[in-house]
Lab assay of single mutants.
Amino acid sequence: NQESVVAAQLIPINTALTLVMMTTRVVSPTGIPAEDIPRLISMQVNQVVPMGTTLMPDMVKGYA
């Protein structure tokens, strides 16, 4: 089963992602794949992401 990127903390809107903000977990439905974490660093979220929420492609500016 593929791991997806999950918020390790509350991420406010327009925050640039850092490694410490993200963790990985096997979730359903699947979100952004864990191997894309290096690509996500410094990208901004376009909404508030509560802790434990799976990051979906449409939540990250410039990802999709």
Rank of each mutant, 00 (worst) to 15 (best):
residue 1 N to Y: 10
residue 1 N to H: 15
residue 1 N to C: 04
residue 1 N to K: 15
residue 1 N to W: 09
residue 1 N to L: 12
residue 2 Q to M: 09
residue 2 Q to S: 10
residue 2 Q to I: 14
residue 2 Q to E: 12
residue 2 Q to R: 14
residue 2 Q to N: 12
residue 2 Q to D: 13
residue 3 E to F: 13
residue 3 E to R: 14
residue 3 E to W: 14
residue 3 E to H: 14
residue 3 E to C: 03
residue 4 S to V: 03
residue 4 S to W: 04
residue 4 S to F: 03
residue 4 S to N: 02
residue 5 V to E: 01
residue 5 V to D: 00
residue 5 V to I: 07
residue 6 V to R: 03
residue 6 V to G: 01
residue 6 V to Y: 02
residue 7 A to K: 01
residue 7 A to P: 01
residue 7 A to N: 01
residue 8 A to E: 05
residue 8 A to Y: 05
residue 9 Q to F: 10
residue 9 Q to M: 09
residue 9 Q to E: 09
residue 9 Q to P: 00
residue 9 Q to L: 07
residue 10 L to K: 08
residue 10 L to F: 09
residue 10 L to H: 15
residue 10 L to A: 09
residue 11 I to C: 02
residue 11 I to Q: 00
residue 11 I to K: 02
residue 12 P to W: 04
residue 12 P to S: 09
residue 12 P to C: 04
residue 12 P to Q: 10
residue 12 P to G: 10
residue 14 N to K: 12
residue 14 N to A: 15
residue 14 N to S: 11
residue 14 N to Q: 07
residue 14 N to G: 07
residue 15 T to H: 07
residue 15 T to A: 13
residue 15 T to E: 06
residue 15 T to N: 05
residue 15 T to K: 06
residue 16 A to E: 12
residue 16 A to K: 09
residue 16 A to Q: 12
residue 16 A to P: 08
residue 16 A to S: 05
residue 17 L to M: 09
residue 17 L to F: 02
residue 17 L to C: 01
residue 17 L to Q: 00
residue 17 L to D: 00
residue 17 L to P: 02
residue 18 T to W: 02
residue 18 T to D: 10
residue 18 T to M: 07
residue 19 L to V: 10
residue 19 L to H: 15
residue 19 L to A: 07
residue 19 L to I: 10
residue 20 V to C: 04
residue 20 V to K: 08
residue 20 V to Y: 13
residue 20 V to H: 13
residue 21 M to P: 00
residue 21 M to A: 07
residue 22 M to Q: 01
residue 22 M to N: 00
residue 22 M to E: 01
residue 22 M to F: 09
residue 22 M to L: 15
residue 22 M to Y: 01
residue 22 M to W: 02
residue 22 M to V: 10
residue 23 T to A: 11
residue 23 T to G: 07
residue 23 T to S: 09
residue 23 T to H: 11
residue 24 T to V: 08
residue 25 R to C: 04
residue 25 R to N: 08
residue 25 R to I: 05
residue 25 R to G: 15
residue 25 R to D: 06
residue 26 V to E: 08
residue 26 V to S: 06
residue 26 V to A: 14
residue 26 V to K: 11
residue 26 V to C: 04
residue 26 V to F: 10
residue 26 V to T: 09
residue 27 V to E: 05
residue 27 V to Q: 05
residue 28 S to H: 07
residue 28 S to T: 15
residue 28 S to I: 10
residue 29 P to A: 07
residue 29 P to N: 13
residue 29 P to V: 13
residue 29 P to L: 04
residue 29 P to W: 03
residue 31 G to S: 03
residue 31 G to H: 02
residue 32 I to G: 00
residue 32 I to S: 01
residue 32 I to W: 03
residue 32 I to F: 04
residue 32 I to R: 01
residue 32 I to V: 11
residue 33 P to G: 07
residue 33 P to V: 09
residue 35 E to Y: 11
residue 35 E to F: 14
residue 35 E to H: 14
residue 35 E to A: 10
residue 36 D to E: 12
residue 36 D to I: 06
residue 36 D to C: 03
residue 36 D to G: 09
residue 36 D to Y: 15
residue 37 I to G: 06
residue 37 I to K: 14
residue 37 I to R: 13
residue 37 I to D: 01
residue 38 P to L: 12
residue 38 P to H: 12
residue 38 P to F: 12
residue 39 R to D: 06
residue 39 R to P: 02
residue 39 R to N: 10
residue 39 R to I: 07
residue 39 R to G: 08
residue 39 R to T: 14
residue 39 R to K: 10
residue 40 L to M: 06
residue 40 L to F: 02
residue 40 L to C: 03
residue 40 L to W: 02
residue 41 I to F: 04
residue 41 I to E: 14
residue 42 S to Y: 06
residue 42 S to K: 14
residue 42 S to V: 03
residue 43 M to R: 12
residue 43 M to Y: 10
residue 43 M to L: 07
residue 43 M to T: 05
residue 43 M to Q: 08
residue 43 M to A: 13
residue 44 Q to L: 12
residue 44 Q to C: 04
residue 44 Q to N: 11
residue 45 V to H: 00
residue 45 V to N: 02
residue 45 V to L: 14
residue 45 V to G: 00
residue 46 N to Q: 14
residue 46 N to I: 10
residue 46 N to G: 06
residue 46 N to F: 04
residue 46 N to S: 07
residue 47 Q to D: 12
residue 47 Q to Y: 07
residue 47 Q to P: 02
residue 47 Q to F: 04
residue 47 Q to T: 11
residue 48 V to Q: 14
residue 48 V to C: 04
residue 48 V to R: 13
residue 48 V to M: 14
residue 49 V to E: 00
residue 49 V to T: 05
residue 49 V to F: 02
residue 49 V to W: 02
residue 50 P to L: 08
residue 50 P to Y: 15
residue 50 P to A: 14
residue 50 P to G: 13
residue 51 M to W: 11
residue 51 M to F: 08
residue 51 M to V: 12
residue 52 G to L: 05
residue 52 G to Y: 11
residue 52 G to T: 05
residue 52 G to K: 04
residue 52 G to F: 11
residue 53 T to P: 01
residue 53 T to E: 13
residue 53 T to G: 10
residue 53 T to N: 10
residue 54 T to M: 04
residue 54 T to C: 03
residue 54 T to V: 12
residue 54 T to Q: 04
residue 54 T to L: 07
residue 55 L to A: 01
residue 55 L to N: 01
residue 55 L to D: 00
residue 55 L to P: 01
residue 56 M to T: 11
residue 56 M to P: 01
residue 56 M to V: 12
residue 56 M to R: 10
residue 57 P to Q: 12
residue 57 P to K: 13
residue 57 P to H: 11
residue 57 P to C: 04
residue 58 D to T: 14
residue 58 D to K: 11
residue 58 D to F: 10
residue 58 D to N: 14
residue 59 M to E: 01
residue 61 K to G: 07
residue 61 K to S: 08
residue 61 K to V: 11
residue 62 G to N: 15
residue 62 G to E: 13
residue 63 Y to N: 10
residue 63 Y to G: 03
residue 63 Y to P: 06
residue 64 A to G: 13
residue 64 A to N: 13
residue 64 A to F: 07
residue 64 A to M: 13
